[in-house]
Design a protein around this nucleic acid. Structure first.
Lengths: 338, 338
DNA sequence: TTGTAGGCGTTATCAC
DNA sequence: GTGATAACGCCTACAA
């Protein structure tokens, strides 16, 4: 088994002291060209690679790594977020260690602890729906922390949120404008903060629109695409609703599948854009979040703190955008296929 | 600025030696219950967290981290891969540091070097199309290395590949069976290994099928969804082809958009499944790779090597699956909408 | 069962 | 400009 060559080996090979090698490796200038040459040769000969992990234990030095804990890296929303964060981090010379909590509180906590023990320079986190960690009880020092998709549970972190309520409100109002009178909310559990917010926006829009818009009809059991499909199938059969606000991607796609099975559709606006929304017939209207911007904002906040920004912790709420493509209106004739 | 408490601080607080704290923290058994109690109290009081980064510089110890370099984390293919790898790694106590090369050779090399300097325990890598790194010239020791989506360029690594040629062949034969006589290959640059393989499978199928299947018609300029849409639009207008094998996800979706614009479709089979393939009219037939299995296999190989597996390096080729959903057949009447 | 001495690979201090 | 020497936080001998 080969050992990694060290500065000591290089120093010995080049016939200089360890410190001189260190200087050379760290690009310091005060160094004799002749020695530099010998050191370079020794490095090449031995295949020396510096050990950043060892260097990072010195006070003032770090591993230049940011930790990211999300729910599920395979979810396009989170992977887009992760990509944006990684991109900003990389440009600043930081690596990103990414872990998925699967919305499990204990797992989330375990991963956060592990990252803290690994001494990451910063932490970006999407707390699970039933968060167990009380950040205010975590011993200092804690690296710069940014919370995504949730309001900050304590005073020592920044947060980045989308305007979930506002987006949901806009979507619902678009359906009202299309003439809908019984709009159903199809979403996941209200344990999830974003779901609560989106439902609040939906309810607010109905209240605003007055009696003509009808009473709320709330479905919160669309945890998976299949469940959403089943729920919407039921709604289509019994005619409980004449329009749908689908509160996340899975709900939207489940609804579209139910439309296809039933051979007819009702007006629909979904939360979160998706790649094939344009392929729908009609194309699918959505509330779009700028996920990349969220990621870049979060990464920027962490890097800012690392660069000495000591301004007050704050929550940034990013606007959403309503993209109307046609599905918010009723079918032209009598129920054409969705 | 607060300093992280160290074992020394804990030892001092508890009135024991540093080594005893180390034993306690590492869960060793030979320890007096009374002292253990005092140490636990001191840890809680000071908010001590062990420094894995420091511990990892000892010989025989590591940071328990695997490095992953892919092209683009925002691409569902890679994020699924990353998720599977992370999942297996986590179960074994490893973190995963993920970086995107954006198919840029220099960037890829820079990231790999950084991860090596960070002393990751293993490395999983998707080399960019124009790889610059010659692994056989990288100085030993190199941690266990697994190459994804590409044949291994040197003898010191394992590889995991999908059966790209076989999948493409099956897709093309399905189109032939549907009666197509001029099947176009719509894909990205042949600089990309998987594209070359898929094209080879396509060409092989045509050769097999004999003169009735017509001559190859190869389009390799579908780098983006938009370009694919444009190319396929042209094909539909001039009638050069009566069926399409779209060699990746972007090409498939671009083709479907072109179908929608033209108001008609031709038989199509795409490489790579996608979430909304079922929503097509007809649903879209695809060659599906088991991306999760690829990820789990790659992670398993690395962990196996870390656990002392010294068997010969090998390349694993995972089968693909042809999923026929209807789009491989011609439209029923005269060109209904796609 | 506990403590002391030494070293892991690197960087910082401070003489020369 | 260069090089001993002492940290950094932790762990492995080995001794008590």
């Amino acid at each position: 088994m080969l050992r990694n060559p060290t500065m000591k080996d290089v120093a010995h090979e080049a016939g200089v002291s360890l410190k001189t090698v260190s200087r050379h490796v760290n690009g310091e200038t005060n160094i004799d060209p002749g020695l530099a040459e010998r050191i370079s040769a020794a490095i090449a000969k031995l295949g020396y690679r510096r050990n950043l992990s060892a260097a990072s234990i010195r006070p003032g030095r770090t591993g230049k790594t940011i930790g990211l804990v999300i729910s599920d890296l395979a979810n396009p929303y989170y992977s887009t977020l992760a990509r944006a964060i990684e991109s900003v981090a990389d440009a600043a010379g930081y690596l990103v260690t990414i872990a998925s909590s699967e919305e499990d509180g204990r797992r989330h906590d375990r991963l956060v602890d592990r990252l803290l023990e690994q001494r990451v320079d910063g932490l970006i986190v999407v707390p699970p729906r039933r968060a167990t960690r009380d950040w205010s009880e975590v011993a200092a020092p804690i690296p710069p922390l940014v919370v995504l998709d949730r309001p900050v549970p304590y005073g020592g972190a920044d947060a980045v949120l989308a305007d979930n309520a506002g987006g949901a409100r806009a979507a619902t109002l678009a359906l009202v404008a299309g003439g809908a009178r019984r709009i159903a909310f199809v979403g996941d559990s209200p344990d999830i903060y974003t779901m609560r917010e989106r439902h609040a926006g939906y309810a607010a829009a109905l209240a605003e629109a007055g009696p003509a818009a009808g009473a709320p009809l709330t479905i919160t059991t669309a945890h998976t695409r299949e469940q959403a499909e089943r729920e919407v199938g039921g709604v289509l059969r019994d005619g409980r609703a004449d329009a749908l606000f689908t509160a996340n991607n899975r709900a939207t796609i489940g609804a579209l599948l139910a439309f296809r099975t039933a051979g007819r559709r009702v007006p629909l606006v979904g939360f979160d854009d998706f790649e094939t929304a344009l392929l729908g017939d009609p194309p699918v209207s959505v509330v779009s979040q700028d996920v990349e911007l969220m990621g870049r904002t979060a990464a920027g906040l962490v890097l800012g703190r690392l660069n000495g920004d000591t301004s007050a912790f704050a929550t940034r709420v990013l606007p959403t955008r309503l993209i109307l493509r046609g599905s918010e209106r009723p079918p032209a004739g009598r129920g054409s296929a969705g």
